[in-house]
Design a protein around this nucleic acid. Structure first.
Length: 514
RNA sequence: GGGAGCGUAGCUCAGUCGGUAGAGCACCGGACUUUUAAUCCGUAGGUCCUGGGUUCGAGCCCCAGCGCUCCCA
């Protein structure tokens, strides 16, 4: 056992000897630190002859002048409201018979002024057993020190939980990325801005539900265990049900069950939930992530553009951000609606200089750039060119619309040009943030498309997976509809300027220890 | 899957040419009732990721492995 832990255990033992529970008890009526800080106007200067004088405004810049201000007043003292706070000890300055202890709760930090004479000899003994990282409660008076620091002048300190492991560096916190993820509790407790980032994630999710609720969408919970990994192109996690002796997969998308609900007459439905893809891990990919899918009967992909804008607009407002957000160190994203719109084929033409309707020309271009084209369907080549050359150039936010029909087996074809499907993806700084269709509701065409594997596309990359029950559902009449998917993790990344998905997923998948 | 980088005290990090393992913070002891990452004095703290190899001698060089980060597929 390290000496740091030994010294903490010794203090734990000492607390027990003093009759104090090192792991504390219920602590009623405490105020959040932010609420306590809001009580500043109640602090005043009271002269000996009973006059109350308002304090000057004290800020970080002016607090050094406070000592001088006091010196100019007639004799008296600073008085403030009684408060009760609780939090973790994050800084500690021991001046002998006087200690300054900074505590933090999830609303803020505040300094405690803890003097031997003020808390009394018994409590002082207890205070000698405190370490950085311990959770304590305090009763005291809120006022300023002579140096103008807002402080709780403690009359009593309560031990609420002894911390046995030593905390990370008091200033830099935990910097090792692996440790921050493995021991997220330490990252949250000691690293600045981490709790706020995850609270913002929560606010964003909450706002999405609110936006959808105001438009009469109903949230449902579909199955996460599927017999067919449909609705997207990805490798699933395989599992097995013992009693039914049945192979199952974790869902890779929400789509096909939500559409069954459209058939059933649930005209506006959504699910906001976890999906699982058994694929690589990267700064933008975690094997489990959160997806929103929304379906609106009698809409189309254009209705989904409007909905996407209002969802993102609401999310930005929910975290109090401006529509123009920083991205990285020197870039910006302007989410002011309406977002830019461009067609897939126009973008492809702009970037490659090739006529996107000329398959031979596209293949030649692909060949000249080292892409393998042999044995590949022209739309597969087109799609590879788009991914390779266009996506990274999209700063956005931009709705890229009208995708090659053959790579969109779940999407309705455009009436004027059946070569394209009524699909858009929303791109921001090269990242695919949303994906939406006018939903294909023709059961016969759907069945054909499920059977059609495009030449040159691996089964894993294809969305064409036969689901007979889904076809049967379509035969019972699914209304024309718009459908939208939004990657919640990526949305949170973009709105919180987080470079890695691991910064906005509390417990990302890691290799197991040892 | 390929490439690059990283792994040293509880935390944050140095470590030169291969020659006794270093600092700051934290901890322990001492001084201090208005400090702001308090300050000052003193002490203690190591599986240098793991396993091999080269060498008189390896934190450092070589090989293999493990873990993380980034880039690419």
């Amino acid at each position: 056992m390290g000496s740091l832990v030994a010294s903490r255990r010794k203090k734990q033992q000492r607390l027990i000897e003093l009759g104090v529970d090192p792991f504390g008890q219920r602590f009623d009526d405490r105020q959040w630190i932010a609420s306590i800080r809001a009580l500043v106007p109640q602090i005043a200067y009271r002269t000996q002859d009973g006059q109350t004088i308002q304090l000057p405004l004290i800020t970080e810049a002016t607090k050094g002048d406070f000592r001088g201000w006091i010196a100019q007043q007639v004799a008296g003292e600073v008085v403030g409201p009684q408060v009760r706070a609780a939090g973790r000890i994050v800084l500690h300055r021991d001046k002998g018979k006087l200690q300054f202890i900074d505590i933090r709760d999830w609303t803020g930090e505040i300094q405690l002024f803890v003097g031997q004479n003020q808390v009394g000899p018994e409590n002082w003994e207890v205070i000698q057993c405190l370490d950085l990282g311990d959770l304590i409660g305090v009763d005291g008076e809120l006022r300023y020190t002579k140096t103008g620091e807002l402080s709780v002048f403690a009359t009593h300190i309560h031990v609420l939980t002894k911390t046995l492991d030593p905390p990370p560096d008091k200033h830099k916190g935990l910097t090792d990325q692996e440790m921050r993820q493995r021991r997220r509790y330490i990252d949250l407790a000691y690293n600045e801005g981490v709790i706020e980032r995850f609270r913002n994630r929560s606010k964003i999710v909450e706002s999405i539900r609110a936006t959808l609720a105001t438009q009469e969408f109903v949230e449902i919970e579909g199955p996460t265990l599927h017999t067919i990994a449909g609705g997207a192109a990805a490798r699933p996690f395989a599992t097995h049900h013992n009693t039914l002796d049945m192979p199952l997969v974790m869902r890779i998308a929400l789509e096909l069950h939500l559409k069954r609900l459209l058939v059933g007459g649930m005209e506006r439905v959504f699910e906001l939930g976890r999906v699982y893809r058994n694929e690589g891990i990267s700064p933008r990919h975690n094997p489990e992530f959160t997806m929103l899918e929304v379906y609106q009967a009698y809409g189309d992909y254009r209705s989904m553009m409007d909905l996407t804008e209002s969802i993102i607009d609401g999310a930005i407002r929910s975290i109090g951000s401006a529509h123009r957000l920083p991205w990285g160190d020197d870039k910006f994203i302007d989410f002011t609606p309406p977002f830019q719109r461009a067609t897939y084929h126009d973008l492809l033409r702009q970037v490659t200089g090739v006529d996107p309707w000329n398959a031979t020309a596209l293949a030649n271009f692909a060949n000249s750039r080292g892409l393998v084209t042999q044995g590949k369907h022209p739309d597969v080549i087109k799609s590879e060119l788009f991914e390779e050359f266009v996506e990274d150039t999209l700063v956005g936010p931009v709705f890229v619309q009208d995708y090659p029909a053959s790579i969109c087996p779940l999407t309705k074809r455009n009436r004027e040009n059946p070569e394209v499907a009524e699909r858009f993806e929303l791109f921001v700084h090269g990242m695919e943030l949303a994906n939406a269709y006018t939903e294909l509701n023709d059961p016969d065409l759907q069945e054909t498309l499920f059977r059609t594997q495009l030449a040159g596309m691996s089964a894993e990359d294809s969305m064409a997976r036969m689901d007979h029950d889904f076809i049967r559902a379509l035969r019972n009449g699914m209304p024309p509809a718009g459908g939208l998917g939004i990657g919640i993790d990526r949305l949170v990344m973009l709105l919180t300027n987080s470079a890695s998905i691991r910064d906005i997923i509390l417990f990302p998948l890691l290799r197991s220890e040892q």
